[in-house]
Design a protein around this nucleic acid. Structure first.
Length: 523
RNA sequence: GGCUCGGUAGCUCAGCUGGUUAGAGCGUGGGAUUCAUAACCCCAAGGUCGGGAGUUCAAGUCUCCCCCGAGCCA
């Protein structure tokens, strides 16, 4: 089984922000889950680097466009590395290989008769890189999105014959699961129902772009070139560029994760382009929501931008991943609230899960020679915690399959709650003071340690690092989920069996696996 | 202005095709406990389900209008 998923190719107009970090973290969790299940994953991310907006941003900074792109895309690379994102490919649309692929793709589209020449006249927003439908006679119109003046353009452009694919696109978006979450589908359906219009795929007098072969003076419209980055990413990094090759390297993608604002491009334009070029279509496009902060939009003008680097340094990867994945329904908009962030991280991770392992391991070490106690009856499959563990595993696997991180996290917490409750009911610290209770206490502690092992197993896709620390605390090896080479196929599913923790195996001295957050000042 | 999605306890959200006293977690208050990261466990208070009208024996759940938020298209 092979699974290809993508983040958007981030536009290098500005540095990475919390939104792109959120998207990328979510994709990372999906990629890790698939790898743990033994699938061959190709996780693609990268940068979209062409367009007039980039050119002007670079000029404003006194840099060449290339230097600007190099700097910003390097910033992304570095950020993903700090977050330990497990992407397999990082594609830049300024990569010379990308240009070759775009040329090959365009040749197919042109051969299919889908490239038309047309005159485009109207008001243009450089920030959107789009023509607006404002009337010709409008006086100093501005872009409703960017509140910046529009520029008058009158040029001959190349158009992609989108109208030809009306029927096929209608069929596609009707397909259950193609547009996710399902609540986003109708919006696209209505858009398509209005009738698809050919859209322009080239610009004239725009040096910072890929030249259109056979059409001097034209460069490709950024979106046309950017979407193709998903294909370039799959081309063999060392061999010659061959479009046909992507079919053997993971295309079609199983999943494009994007922000809800660019759903139309991915669910309508992109599939039509692929149809024209005779390539198969992606299986699913998931449009997630946006993040606000303390109820307000984040923005430079408000000065409330949350820098992912600061967040990482002050709080750590596990905490941020947990908060974003566990508290924000994937697909909906979410609000980053510092108080809630600290509350959830401390409660769930430090207290409920971390402390459970800590208290149990400490008792086991104290009374059973610093080792996993004899299991006794606790090894049986009908032990209450065995049942609870199995249920949690089913819930986690199902939820992750459905991209419902929140439900997965809740299932983990439920198991942790059950284990804490069990411990309190059985009160081994009391029983231990009675004579003849050693075997019963041993079984209870074994059961809770084993349940803790399950917690670590189930957390592996969501919080690989915490999972690893927990396993080490139990004297076990962490799961590798970060790359194609280091995942022994089946190790993770195999770990989902009750009673694998071996009695008598040594337990290291307990150390808190999760530090509580103490955030006195604002981030 | 049009389309789409959302507006349920202080906070984040569940509530399937309308039907007993509207649920969970966090936060708050109280109790119990000491194995543990002032952790864990138990209990409680808190909501006229954005507003208004309507359909129905019965509406958070259906219809219409309005208000607020988000995205898309104008």
């Amino acid at each position: 089984m092979s699974y290809t998923l993508t983040t958007p190719l981030y536009y290098v107009n500005d540095r990475a922000h919390l939104g792109s970090t959120y998207t990328t973290l979510a994709c990372d969790a999906i990629a890790r889950h698939r790898r743990l299940r033994g699938e061959r994953v190709t996780f693609i991310t990268g940068c979209d680097e062409h367009g007039q907006k980039i050119q002007r941003t670079a000029e404003a900074a006194g840099l060449s466009p290339q230097a600007h792109c190099d700097a910003v895309s390097e910033g992304y690379r570095e950020l993903w590395s700090r977050w330990q994102i497990s992407h397999d490919r990082f594609i830049r649309t300024t990569d010379p290989r990308h240009r070759e692929l775009v040329e090959q793709f365009f040749a197919r589209v042109e051969a299919a008769g889908d490239v038309l020449e047309g005159r485009q006249q109207g008001w243009y927003c450089v920030a959107c890189e789009e023509f607006k439908d404002d009337p010709h006679e409008a006086q100093d119109p501005e872009c409703s999105v960017h509140r910046r003046p529009l520029e008058w353009r009158d040029e001959v452009n190349l158009f992609f014959r989108l109208s030809r694919y009306q029927g096929q696109i209608e069929d596609l978006i009707r397909r259950p699961g193609f547009i996710a979450p399902a609540s986003r589908r109708r919006e696209v359906e209505n858009f398509v129902a209005q009738g698809l219009r050919d859209f322009s795929i080239s610009r004239v007098d725009l040096p910072w772009g890929i030249p259109v072969p056979g059409h001097p003076g034209h460069t490709f419209y950024v979106w046309f070139d950017a979407l193709l980055g998903y294909l370039t990413a799959l081309v063999d990094p060392d061999g010659p560029v061959d479009l046909e090759q992507v079919l053997k390297r993971g295309w079609p993608a199983q999943l494009h994760v994007i922000g809800k604002d660019i759903l139309r491009f991915h669910a309508v334009y992109w599939p039509a382009m692929l149809l024209s070029a005779g390539l198969p279509l992606p299986e699913r496009v998931f449009g997630h929501g946006f993040l606000t902060r303390e109820g307000q939009k984040m923005g430079k003008s408000l000065g409330n931008v949350l820098d992912p680097v600061v967040l990482l340094e002050r709080c750590g990867r596990d905490a941020v991943r947990w908060y974003l994945l566990r508290d924000i329904p994937f697909g909906d908009d979410g609000d980053f609230q510092q108080q809630r962030f600290t509350d959830l991280v401390n409660n769930d991770l430090a207290n409920t899960i971390g402390n459970l392992l800590n208290r149990t391991s400490s008792m086991a070490r104290k009374w059973y020679d610093a080792a996993v106690p004899p299991a006794g009856d606790a090894a049986l499959a009908d032990h209450p915690l065995a049942v609870a563990s199995l249920e949690a595993a089913e819930a986690v696997n199902g939820a992750l399959e459905a991209l419902d991180f929140r439900a997965a996290a809740e299932a983990v917490l439920q198991l942790a709650g059950a284990a804490n409750g069990y411990l309190n009911d059985r009160a081994p610290w009391k029983a231990m003071k009675q004579p003849g209770q050693e075997a019963a206490v041993a079984a209870d502690l074994y059961a809770v340690l084993e349940a803790s092992r399950w917690l670590a197993v189930l957390l592996a896709p969501l919080l690989p690092e915490l999972s690893g620390r927990m396993l080490q605390q139990l004297g076990l090896e962490p799961f590798a989920s970060g790359g194609p080479t280091d995942a022994p196929a089946g190790a993770w599913p195999d770990a989902q069996r009750w009673g694998l923790l071996r009695s008598g195996s040594p337990l290291p001295e307990p150390e808190p696996v999760m530090q509580r957050l103490e955030l006195d000042s604002a981030l």
